[in-house]
Every structure is written in C-alpha cells, then in structure tokens.
Computed example of a mutant assay.
Amino acid sequence: MDRTFTRLREVIAAALLVFTSLTLALPVRAQSDDASQREIAALLSFVAHSPCTFIRNGTAYPATQAEGHLEDKLHYLQRKGKVHSAEDFIQLAATESSISGKPYLVRCDGKERPSADWLNEELTRLRNAGS
C-alpha cells in the first residue's frame, strides 16, 4: 500500500510539473504569435500599397489583387496549421504558385525579381526599424 501511494504521489508530482511548464510557456508562445501576426499584416500591407506589379503564373496583377491573393493563401495555410511566422508566410504563401510551382515575381521600376527576395528584404527592414 505504501508503494502504491508513493508511486501515485510521484505521478501526480510529475503531471503537475509538466502542466506548470506548459502553462508558463503559453504566454511566450502567444507573444511570439502576436509578433508574427503583426509582421505578416505589415507584409500584406506592404504588398497592397506597393507601386510594384505582382506576377503570378506569367500574368501581371496590381498590388491590391496580389495582396488579396496572398491573404487568401495565408488563411488557407493557417487553417491547415502551417504558418507560424513571417518566414513561413513568405516561404509557403508568397514564393511560388501552389498549382504550377512557378515562382512569384515582382516588377518594380521596370526590373523583375523573386517576390520572396523582395518580401524578405522588407521583413528585415521592419525588424531593424523595430529594434
């Protein structure tokens, strides 16, 4: 009987330790998620207000349409639990067509470049401005 009681106390203590650890980690994760969501929103706003043209599968789209498309992809990916950071957003939603696999491009001042490079530069600028 003593062994059973001792073992039960050990199991309860271990469960409390795990629960406490998880509970303490939640605010950090929530803060991280909030920061990531703000960065993603800032990137979407950057796209929407850009004078650049977004090229998807060989067709040029104005900034507002590009932003709408990326936002739709973001929501789909978030429902699947795949986007947790601004880097995830860029890599999974804003780099290439999910259907054709062709890279997304942006045309700014007559020059084309991969959208991933363009957005990663903006993310770096946002983070440097915030520090």
Rank of each mutant, 00 (worst) to 15 (best):
A60V: 11
Q31I: 14
G68D: 01
A94H: 00
F5G: 07
L92H: 00
R3H: 13
P114I: 07
F46T: 11
D117L: 05
L105N: 01
L26R: 09
A116I: 10
D72C: 05
L22K: 03
F19W: 07
G130N: 04
S115C: 15
H49C: 06
T59P: 08
N128F: 04
R113P: 00
I99V: 15
D117Y: 05
I90L: 09
D2K: 10
L24V: 10
K82I: 00
M1C: 10
R9Y: 06
S115K: 02
L123N: 01
N57C: 13
I99M: 13
S21L: 11
E112P: 04
L17E: 15
P62C: 02
L70C: 00
Q37P: 09
L44P: 00
H75K: 14
V28S: 06
N128T: 05
L16C: 08
V83Q: 02
K102R: 11
R38H: 07
L22I: 04
H75N: 12
W118F: 01
A48D: 07
H49W: 11
I12H: 04
A25E: 05
Y104W: 08
F89R: 03
T23A: 05
R7Q: 14
F54I: 05
Y104P: 11
P51V: 02
E122A: 13
N120H: 01
L105Q: 03
S32Q: 13
I99Y: 15
I99C: 13
A25H: 07
S97K: 14
I12D: 08
Q91K: 12
G101P: 03
T59H: 15
P51Y: 02
N120Q: 09
P103G: 07
F46C: 07
S115D: 10
A129T: 10
T64V: 13
E122R: 07
N57H: 14
F46E: 01
A94Y: 01
A48G: 07
S32L: 14
L70W: 00
N57I: 13
R3V: 15
A25Q: 07
L43A: 03
E39F: 11
S131K: 02
V28P: 03
P27M: 06
P103M: 05
S32Y: 14
Q31L: 15
H49V: 06
A48P: 03
R38P: 11
T59L: 15
S115I: 02
D2A: 02
Q31T: 11
H69M: 12
L24M: 11
Q91R: 13
T4M: 12
V18N: 09
A14L: 06
L17N: 12
N128Y: 04
I40R: 00
A116S: 11
A60Y: 09
H49I: 05
K80N: 12
G81Q: 06
A42D: 01
P103W: 05
R127N: 02
Y61T: 04
E71F: 10
D33A: 15
L126K: 00
G101N: 02
A35W: 15
P27V: 08
D88V: 04
V18R: 04
R107Q: 08
F5L: 14
A86P: 04
Y61E: 11
R38A: 12
S50M: 01
S98A: 03
A13H: 13
P114S: 07
L8A: 14
V47T: 02
N128V: 03
L26S: 03
K102S: 06
K73R: 11
G58Y: 12
A116P: 03
G58R: 03
R38M: 10
I55T: 07
S85Q: 14
G58M: 09
N57V: 02
V106M: 00
K82N: 09
N120G: 01
V11Y: 10
P103I: 02
